[in-house]
């Protein structure tokens, strides 16, 4: 057996020299799956405690138990489902309309330079208009039924989708398009096989933003003549100063946002597994 493999020899050698000190710790991202939950639990416990001890007035800051009670009330009397159904329908139709229109215009602007020359200043001019300011006009144009609610959400979703789509097309590597041209692929094939899938990451990132916008705008949309809907519910609770019910509605809205975000993450993981 050679000396170097002798354990005693090795240990003697290392005891002579100085051990190299490890200095590469920290600055890495580790997963702490329970930390977020624990932080939430502590926060809620503190909140409840503050209310119980009378440190916070139940009117100014309803305790989590009151919010939970209001939520349970919504579930048991069926109003949660009724409101959720109305809002989800509006979000779905409005979002699909705005997204379809936005992608169509975005693609035109991404591909044809004339469309872009016309479109960019128009989008810049119309995008920042608060859709809520247009509500009275929407009532005149689309009435106070569902169409004006679809329009409010659809308009809000349309412009960010246009911007996301044409920026996404700009991000499609030009070398892939040159490659396709050098193999004689026709224009339509290039669009279908290269531009569309290449723009998909950018478009999906846009979906994330427009889904949140749709959620925000459903509250605004339900300001107009809505009998049911989470937005209408939250507005009514606010008008009636029922702060616990108000927070219960807000909780439902944020859970809805979380659910939509999770669905989009799954979609991204499936469609963009090539990244």
């Amino acid at each position: 057996m050679p000396d170097s493999l002798n354990p005693t020899a090795v240990s003697t050698a290392s005891s002579l020299g100085q051990p190299v000190r490890f200095r590469g710790g920290g600055f890495t991202v580790k997963r702490h799956p329970w930390a977020a939950l624990a932080a939430f639990a502590v926060l809620i416990a503190l909140w409840e405690g503050a209310s119980r001890l009378g440190l916070a007035s139940p009117l100014f800051l309803p305790p989590p138990s009151a919010v939970g009670h209001a939520l349970v009330g919504m579930v048991t009397d069926g109003s949660l489902w009724l409101n959720l159904k109305a809002s989800l329908g509006r979000i779905a139709v409005g979002w699909v309309l705005g997204t379809a229109g936005g992608m169509l215009v975005g693609f035109a602007m991404g591909i044809f330079s004339t469309a872009r020359a016309v479109g960019v200043p128009l989008v810049s001019a119309f995008f920042p208009i608060p859709k809520i300011a247009l509500l009275p006009l929407f009532i005149l144009w689309f009435g106070i039924g569902e169409p004006s609610k679809f329009a409010t959400i659809g308009f809000g979703v349309f412009f960010p989708t246009v911007i996301a789509t044409y920026s996404a097309i700009d991000q499609v590597p030009r070398n892939l398009i040159r490659m396709a041209q050098s193999f004689g692929l026709p224009w339509r094939s290039i669009l279908r096989s290269i531009v569309l899938p290449g723009a998909l990451p950018g478009i999906l990132a846009g979906f994330r933003i427009t889904a949140s916008i749709a959620l925000i705008l459903v509250v605004a949309a339900e300001m107009i003549g809505a009998e049911y809907g989470i937005g209408a519910f939250v507005l009514m609770a606010g008008n009636l100063m029922q702060t616990d019910t108000l927070l219960a509605g807000v909780l439902v809205l944020s859970l809805l946002g979380l659910a939509i975000g999770t669905v989009l993450s799954q979609l991204e993981r499936r469609l963009l597994n090539w990244r």
């Binding site: 300001m223 107009i224 003549g225 209408a232």
Partner: peptide
Amino acid sequence: VPLQDVPKMVAA
């Protein structure tokens, strides 16, 4: 039909 404010009521 709740419309939030008088201008929107007038529009409707």
